[in-house]
Amino acid sequence: MTRIPLVGGLVDAATAAAGSAVSAAVAVPRSVVHAVLDDVFDYLSSTDLTGVILSSVDLNRVLATVDLDELLARVDLNAVLSRVDVNEVLAGVDLNALLARVDVDAVLARTDLVGVAEKVVDGVDVTAIVREASATVSTEVISDVRIEAERADDGVEQFVNRMLRRKGRR
């Protein structure tokens, strides 16, 4: 490209002037943008953003995008449950209403009654029960025999006293 001496100087001067004008034109909006942003940040720091967000954002729409299964998979349920006062929870439970909803027949249908009976019988010492019962019966029989023997003895004594015409106890 060949330069024409007279025109080339004008082009260089025009380019330099245009560059200065563009720099000046860009500098003004930058300072304005910085001032506006400073005002915006001052406003935001002094404003309750929670209220603004709650009144402006459709939380149901936002929550509809949340994967609850993924969120719950990251929750340590043991840590959550360790903070629960079970006694306080149970204090609020109406046991009568709860038990009224229990299907006792269904519970018994799922219960191994034969197995329960076997455990009960295995836990009972039948030999000891029979021994104690026999000892009690034997003690009572011996006591009854002694009482009857005493009465018979008294009867014989009275008979002998009458025959011998003794005045003794009656």
Rank of each mutant, 00 (worst) to 15 (best):
Met1Arg: 10
Arg162Leu: 02
Ala100Thr: 10
Ala14Thr: 08
Gly92Tyr: 14
Thr65Pro: 01
Val126Leu: 00
Val66Cys: 02
Val32Gln: 02
Ile4Asp: 02
Leu90Glu: 03
Gly92Val: 03
Arg165Ala: 01
Ile142His: 14
Val66Arg: 07
Val28Ile: 07
Thr136His: 08
Phe41Gly: 01
Gly8Ser: 11
Gly115Ser: 08
Val137Tyr: 12
Leu63Tyr: 15
Ser143Trp: 15
Ala135Glu: 14
Gly168Val: 07
Ala27Met: 02
Val7Tyr: 09
Leu113Ile: 08
Leu49Ala: 09
Arg165Trp: 09
Asp12Cys: 03
Arg166Cys: 04
Asp39Phe: 12
Val22Phe: 07
Asp48Ala: 03
Lys119Cys: 00
Gly92Gln: 05
Ser20Lys: 15
Val22Leu: 00
Met163Leu: 11
Val32Ser: 01
Asn161Tyr: 09
Met163His: 10
Val7His: 04
Arg30Asn: 12
Leu113Gln: 08
Asp153Cys: 00
Val84Ala: 04
Gly8Lys: 11
Met1Ser: 06
Leu44Pro: 03
Ala18Gln: 13
Val137Phe: 10
Glu148Val: 07
Val126Asp: 06
Ala18Val: 06
Val156Gln: 02
Thr111Cys: 07
Val22Met: 03
Leu77Glu: 01
Asp153Asn: 13
Arg3Gln: 11
Ala16Thr: 13
Gly155Glu: 08
Leu44Gly: 07
Thr139His: 10
Val7Asp: 00
Ser20Val: 13
Leu54Tyr: 15
Thr15Ile: 10
Glu140Gln: 05
Val7Leu: 07
Leu68Ala: 07
Val137Gln: 06
Val33Tyr: 05
Gly8Pro: 05
Leu59Phe: 15
Arg169His: 11
Val145Ala: 02
Gly8Met: 09
